[in-house]
Simulated scan of single mutants.
Amino acid sequence: MVHVVPAFLSELRRPWLWLGSAVGALLVVGLIAVLLGMAGLESPTSPGIEVLRQASMSLMLTGAAVVGSFAFTSDYRAGCFTRRVLHFQRGPAFTARAASTALAALLVGATIGMLFGLSGEILDGAWGFSFHAVLAFAGTACMGSLWGFAIGSLIRSHLVSLFVVPLSLVLPELLAGWLGDAEQFFFPVLAADWADQLAVHIAAFGSFVGAVSWLLVVTAVAFLVFLKRDLA
């Protein structure tokens, strides 16, 4: 794994890493702006910050997951990722791409979190900047990107991942009636609970450990499968 650092530095210089992250951020910001606008039109009073923040972080999780999946599938489809594997070897190439994708998502999430807080001050002098809320957005984006990257590397199809990755995030909610209390142990629910609690200065250690455990398992499976599968 001596090639991990050079591979990671090479990933940071990859233009599409930042361009793709910027496009994804603009889409998420646009959707959040629409959400805030609709909430303002439906009620003459300021909408509840908790509801808006939860909805915004849900959009953040989904948007980051889609961008994360494309970080693998787009280059894989074009053959660019295969060339990186030939240059850096499989393990370092996969690790560096996952790490750089997560880092970009972390920065994007923090930026969107700050914009979300500032938008309240601009609109009606409420909300304001909160370090914990920014950290919640950043962590949500980072988790979502790793989840999407792992799922995308398993699927490999660019178009299929566009539907499967968001579906994997809403499936526990869709099956809530069938799953019962087991719903709370799935990744999207754990990640959302951790972010919601952190945003209001409550440490949800159990939810964080559960969400990270899901990420470790899914990413490890994706990594092992990537090492064994044909690159063609």
Rank of each mutant, 00 (worst) to 15 (best):
L179H: 08
A133D: 05
P44W: 09
L167D: 11
S69E: 07
Q54P: 04
G152H: 03
H87N: 13
A232W: 15
A191D: 01
L61V: 03
D124P: 00
H3Y: 15
L17F: 07
S153R: 04
M57G: 00
V221H: 00
R97V: 05
I122C: 01
Q54T: 04
H3P: 06
T219E: 04
V218G: 00
Q89H: 14
T82S: 09
L41M: 13
L27V: 13
D124C: 06
L171Y: 08
H201P: 03
S74G: 01
L146M: 12
A55F: 10
S69Q: 08
V67A: 07
Q184E: 14
A22N: 07
G109I: 03
A203L: 13
V218A: 02
C80V: 15
S119P: 13
A126G: 11
A204E: 13
A71W: 09
I151N: 02
V4L: 15
A78I: 12
F88R: 02
A71Q: 09
L162P: 04
L31V: 09
R13W: 11
A25M: 14
M57K: 05
G139F: 00
G48D: 15
F226R: 01
A203H: 08
L17R: 00
F185T: 09
F149M: 07
L154S: 07
R53T: 07
V189R: 10
R83S: 15
G180C: 07
P92W: 09
G40N: 06
L174P: 10
L227H: 08
F186Q: 03
L106S: 05
G20S: 06
V165H: 02
R229E: 15
L35V: 01
L12A: 08
V164H: 04
V165A: 05
L19F: 14
V209T: 09
A104M: 08
F223Q: 10
F116Q: 04
R156E: 15
L41R: 09
S157I: 03
C80I: 15
E11A: 12
I202R: 11
P15W: 05
V85W: 12
I122V: 13
A133W: 00
G20E: 10
A126W: 14
L12M: 14
A138C: 01
L31R: 05
P15K: 02
A71H: 07
G109W: 03
L9H: 12
G68R: 00
G30R: 03
F226A: 04
V218N: 04
A204F: 12
E50Y: 11
M57E: 02
V189I: 14
D230H: 14
L12E: 12
S161Q: 02
A96L: 06
D124V: 07
V217I: 10
Q89T: 14
D196K: 11
S10G: 11
M38N: 05
L227W: 06
G177F: 04
L215H: 04
A136P: 03
S157E: 10
K228H: 14
W147D: 00
F137P: 00
F137E: 08
S69L: 06
L61T: 01
R90E: 09
A78L: 15
F187R: 01
S46I: 14
G79W: 06
A192P: 03
A25E: 05
C80D: 15
V212I: 13
A138P: 00
S168W: 11
